[in-house]
């Protein structure tokens, strides 16, 4: 009986949180695409990767079109991700000095928040975010 409990305890987190390698890879790829767009100043490309609410709030706060507003945010250009966590429809990618939050829209992952710095125990302070 003991092996059965151990197997369940190991498998359930992966099954229930949807944190299989497929989701991790999709999140990692989407975060990398956003970071590449920021690094190359492809602002239209970066805007295309934002979740609708995040894009709306960014434009409303800056009173500028998305591509101009995101250019003014001076987002950092971090290196390789330290850690990827995926739970259901939300994901977090942590880098040195930067954290991204992503959310799943239909079949793709989009940026929920970027330019985030920790304020523990408070939520991250993010340069742009939705919700």
């Amino acid at each position: 009986m003991r092996w059965w409990f151990a197997a369940l305890a190991l498998l359930l987190p992966m099954i229930l949180s949807g944190c299989g390698s497929g989701q991790d890879a999709a999140v990692r790829d989407r975060a990398a695409a956003f970071q590449d767009a920021v690094a190359t100043q492809d602002w239209a490309g970066a805007c295309a990767l934002l979740a609708p609410e995040t894009r709306t709030e960014l434009e409303a706060a800056a009173k500028l079109p998305c591509a101009e507003a995101i250019a003014e945010e001076k987002l950092p250009a971090p290196g390789r991700p330290d850690r990827v966590d995926v739970f259901g429809t939300m994901a977090e990618v942590r880098y040195q000095g930067e954290t991204l939050f992503l959310t799943r829209f239909a079949d793709e992952w989009l940026l929920h928040a970027a330019g985030c710095t920790p304020q523990r125990p408070k939520p991250y302070d993010c340069a742009l975010h939705g919700g």
Partner: peptide, 29 residues
Amino acid sequence: VLSWLVQSVAGWAAYNETRMQQLRDPIAW
């Protein structure tokens, strides 16, 4: 015991999903 174990794992995943919506780090099981 099995139901409580599944509750703990599913609750952990659901709680972490909420934490990320609030721009907070997930916690360990």
